[in-house]
């Protein structure tokens, strides 16, 4: 498969993953471009579908990028404030529309650690199986299960003020 065909075929799902990981279309675009360049430079002979390798490069790049983001903590603080506002309401679940709640859940994923975020997005948001995630990321399945459990546990903990009211 020619390079431009590979780009044509996989750029959309890759942008979707990168966008969820980084939360920003422009950053996602840079990450996907970087992934394609690294893929082209790797000179590896791809026998089957190059999507796993492309995804692996992309996800590792996104994880590195998230690790470097020092302003992540700032976001965490703003989200905590949001939750405090929700806690102060008598019935926050009723006062917030379902769409807003979903937005809050999406925002809360920024507080997860990069690897936890990657597996949470791929499993619970994108719907990949654990074996597929293992192929896409290169992490062992047990590692994925542990990180997934921690991510879900954290999400439940952070959303508990809203969930209990349900």
């Amino acid at each position: 498969m020619e390079l431009h065909q590979v780009i044509q075929k996989y750029q959309r799902p890759m942008v979707a993953i990168a966008c969820r990981m980084l939360g920003n279309l422009e950053e996602a675009k840079d990450a996907v471009q970087e992934a394609f360049i690294r893929f082209w430079k790797s000179d590896t002979q791809i026998k089957g579908d190059p999507f796993s390798l492309l995804c692996r490069i992309l996800i590792n790049h996104c994880i590195d990028k998230l690790r470097k983001q020092t302003f992540r903590r700032f976001f965490s603080i703003t989200e905590i404030k949001d939750l405090d506002i929700m806690k102060s309401n008598e019935n926050p679940h009723k006062s917030l529309e379902n769409k807003q709640l979903v937005d809050h859940v999406e925002k809360l994923t920024t507080r997860l650690k990069p690897v936890q975020k990657a597996v949470f997005i791929l499993r619970d948001m994108q719907g990949y199986s654990i074996q597929e995630i293992s192929d896409l990321t290169g992490f062992p399945e047990n590692n994925i299960r542990v990180n997934l459990h921690l991510a879900r546990k954290n999400m439940r903990k952070w959303l508990q003020p809203i969930l209990k009211e349900d």
């Binding site: 959309r12 942008v15 979707a16 969820r20 675009k29 394609f36 979903v102 959303l159």
Partner: peptide, 26 residues
């Protein structure tokens, strides 16, 4: 409930011009 909320998070719409631009830039 968390799983339900996570599944409801919509995929961000990616404009086709953005995809074309991405391919050209790449």
């Amino acid at each position: 409930q968390v799983a339900n909320f996570s599944k409801q998070i919509p995929e961000r719409s990616i404009p086709s011009e953005f995809i074309d631009q991405l391919k050209r830039d790449t």
